[in-house]
Every structure is written in C-alpha cells, then in structure tokens.
C-alpha cells in the first residue's frame, strides 16, 4: 500500500465529522425524549387525575427494582450528558466554521441555507436558554407563574392561564420545530443514511413528519389551557 508523502502536520484533534456524529447521536437521544415528553404532556387532555397519576408514576417508574426517582435520575443524567456533548460540539463547529472564512464576500446572494444555518445556531442557543427556564419553572418551581398550586396538573393550568407564559412556550416550540426539521435530516446525513436520491426523499419526509408532530403535540396543551378548553 502506498503511504502519503505529505507532512500531516498539526491536525485538529477531533475531526469535524466525529463532532457531527456526537451531535447526531445526542440529538437523536433528545428526539426520543422529546416524543415521550410530548406524549406525557398530552395526558392533560385525559383529565387532571390521569395527569397527576402520570407525574407520580414517573417518579416510581421501575420500582421496586429502582429506588424512588431512580428512573428519573437515569433519564436526567443521560440528558445532561447528551446536552453537554451536543451543545459543546455545536459551539466547537460554529467556531471552526467562523475561522474557515475570515474574509467575507462583498456580495452574496440571499440564501435559504444561510437562514437555516442561523436558525440552527441561534435557535439552538435559544433552546439552551429555554431548557434552563423550563427546569426552573416546572422542575424546581423556582419560577412560579399564575400563583400557587397543589398538584402538577394545577401548576400546568395556572401557568398557561398567563398569556406571556403561553407565548414563551410557543416560541420555544417553534424553535424546536425548525431545529428538528433540519436536525433530523442532518443527523441522517451524518450517520450515512442518505446513499441515494430516494433515500434523501425519505429522510426529508421523516424530518418533516417528526417536526410537525412535535410542534402540534407540544403546542396543543398550552393553547387548550389558555383557551379554557380543559376544565
């Protein structure tokens, strides 16, 4: 076998495709979580009791094999690791891309791709901020919206009676939809699933389907609560 005669020199430690693979795998872990989370939220339509029971079961899932909240913590740790990996790779690639073209074009034709790129990066950053807000709101109760409550269902109902809380959540869901539209396509590309024009079409359709399901599924509970459709 021939060997290369050129000096490899100093190469970046982590190849950009490896970073993309980390993003794809962690992103798909999120997608799995997001779909389950969405399904859980939709239980509010089955009534307060069902929703409260679901919230309670989440804490006892897997018991007595797992300690109380054991399953919840496994999920939380997985998600935190995925989040750090995902956002870390995103920022590393973002900075490399910046260094790859330090002189800008004088004229650039308006590109859809540029918009998508920005929506992934800034929209991703917005999601990061939202995740922190969301945890402070519904997990730790540090941020209370719409007054006190006795159980998880009431907390949900109180919060989404407040118009700006509804707006914040709808904005985050819109960011998530955009992110998934490109993200799922991109993850498929990164994992080597697009080997033909037909495969590309299938991948695009999957991305659209998941994004639409997620946007509708997450937008329904806050909207329904705000419009007073849930007693």
């Amino acid at each position: 076998m021939a060997t290369s005669t050129i000096d490899a020199g100093k190469r970046p430690k982590t190849g950009s495709i490896l970073l993309k693979t980390v993003m794809a795998v962690s992103g798909l872990i999120f997608v799995g979580f997001i779909l389950a989370h969405m399904y859980g939220n939709l239980m509010i339509f089955a009534g307060r009791e069902t929703f409260n029971e679901y919230a309670h079961h989440l804490r006892e899932f897997g018991s007595p094999m797992l300690p109380e909240k054991g399953f919840l913590w496994v999920m939380r740790i997985t998600l935190i690791v995925a989040l750090v990996a995902h956002a870390g790779s995103a920022f590393a690639l973002w900075s490399r891309a910046g260094k790859a073209r330090t002189t800008r074009y004088v004229q650039r034709k308006g590109q859809w791709a540029t918009f998508v790129k920005r929506s992934m990066r800034w929209g991703g950053a917005a999601l990061l901020i939202f995740v922190v807000f969301h945890i402070l709101h519904f997990t730790t109760n540090t941020i209370q919206i719409g007054g006190d409550y006795d159980n998880p269902a009431d907390r949900l109902l109180n919060s989404f009676g407040v118009w700006w809380a509804v707006l914040i959540y709808l904005f985050a869901v819109a960011c998530l939809g955009m992110h998934l539209l490109h993200g799922i396509w991109s993850a498929g590309m990164t994992l080597g699933l697009n080997r033909s024009l037909d495969a590309a079409e299938r991948l695009r359709l999957t991305a659209i389907l998941v994004a639409v399901v997620v946007v509708v599924g997450f937008a329904l509970p806050p909207l329904a609560i705000f419009l007073g459709l849930i007693p």
Partner: peptide, 11 residues
C-alpha cells in the same frame, strides 16, 4: 480539517 475547511452542516 487540517487545511482549515469548515465542517459540513448538510445545508
């Protein structure tokens, strides 16, 4: 990557 090209974002 060594040549300083950016990563692909599949756009």
């Amino acid at each position: 990557d060594h040549e300083g090209f950016g990563g692909c974002t599949n756009l």
